[in-house]
């Protein structure tokens, strides 16, 4: 079985600053893959590289067997056109720390936007699916509300529904609960747990160790742009091998 995401020696620099210094990892289909680590360790950058919001500087990164951002012919790499990149992004859903809902559209319009505009779906079909998705994230009654009329947790659940509307094969979560009140975190994690149970492949950058332990299939601890330790979340979190991991976990647990 081909890996859903495969990274081999992935490097990323912003100017002179090297943020990723050679990441090797593999995410299997239907796997819930958690990325933890201190801020500035490069985990969000790595996530953004997967759907080409950031370009990698060196190494190879592929999603579902296809290179991200490039096409290989012989031993030469050709940069993909913007339209080709956009085509590949359809299959990858992304959820942001700050939600990034479209504020001028209601919740249901946010969810309908991509299917209608990108896939050219009929509005009635898109609306029916959007209603179903909002119901799934527990917000059927908020369909007509603008994002400013929703709480942070509700906004993030709409954002998840919006990403799911494109029926992606891979979901990327970039610290989805970090901007939320502690009370609201649970609702979002419940939705994510449901997704995991349905067999969605998920890469989750998170500080929620409880979620990683319960739902995660694998876990990677990153620091300073490299993978320090990886393995089964229950093993890594309860019995870390590396000193750096121990120090980090002792602070957050």
């Amino acid at each position: 079985m081909t890996a859903m995401v495969k990274a081999e020696g992935v490097h990323k620099s912003f100017g002179a600053v090297e943020v990723l210094k050679g990441i090797d990892l593999e995410v299997a289909p239907r796997e819930v893959f958690c990325l933890i680590g201190p801020s500035g360790s490069g985990k969000s950058t790595f996530l953004r590289c997967i759907n080409h919001l950031d370009k990698i500087s060196a190494g190879r990164l592929s999603v579902d067997g296809e290179l991200v951002g490039y096409r290989q012919k012989g031993d030469k790499l050709y940069e993909l056109k913007d339209s080709e990149v956009a085509l590949k992004r359809r299959d990858i859903g992304m959820v942001f720390q700050r939600f990034n809902l479209f504020p001028h559209m209601t919740a249901i319009e946010n969810v309908m936007e991509a299917p209608v505009q990108v896939r050219g779906e009929a509005k009635a079909v898109a609306r029916a699916r959007a209603e179903r998705l909002l119901d799934r994230v527990g917000l059927a009654d908020k369909a007509g509300n603008y994002p400013s009329q929703l709480s942070g947790g509700q906004q993030q659940r709409v954002a998840i529904a919006r990403a799911l509307a494109m029926e992606p094969k891979l979901m990327l979560f970039d610290e989805p609960t970090s901007a939320l009140d502690p009370e609201l975190v649970g609702d979002v994690l419940d939705v994510m747990r449901g997704l995991a149970e349905d067999g969605m492949t998920m890469i989750v950058v998170t500080h929620e160790m409880g979620f990683a332990r319960e739902v995660g299939d694998s876990l990677v601890f990153m620091d300073g742009g490299v993978v320090v330790e990886s393995g089964n979340p229950r093993d890594v979190l309860t019995n870390p091998q590396h000193d750096r991991t121990k120090a980090f976990l002792s602070k957050v647990l």
Binding site: I92, G93, F96, P103, Q117, R162
Partner: peptide, 25 residues
């Protein structure tokens, strides 16, 4: 900028992003 990113992440083109997301705001 997060608006553009969210729109791109959904697979929308530059033109669509401008017309549907950025310009109305």
């Amino acid at each position: 900028e997060g608006q553009t990113e969210a729109s791109h992440a959904l697979g929308m083109s530059h033109t669509k992003t401008l017309r549907r997301i950025v310009i109305p705001q």
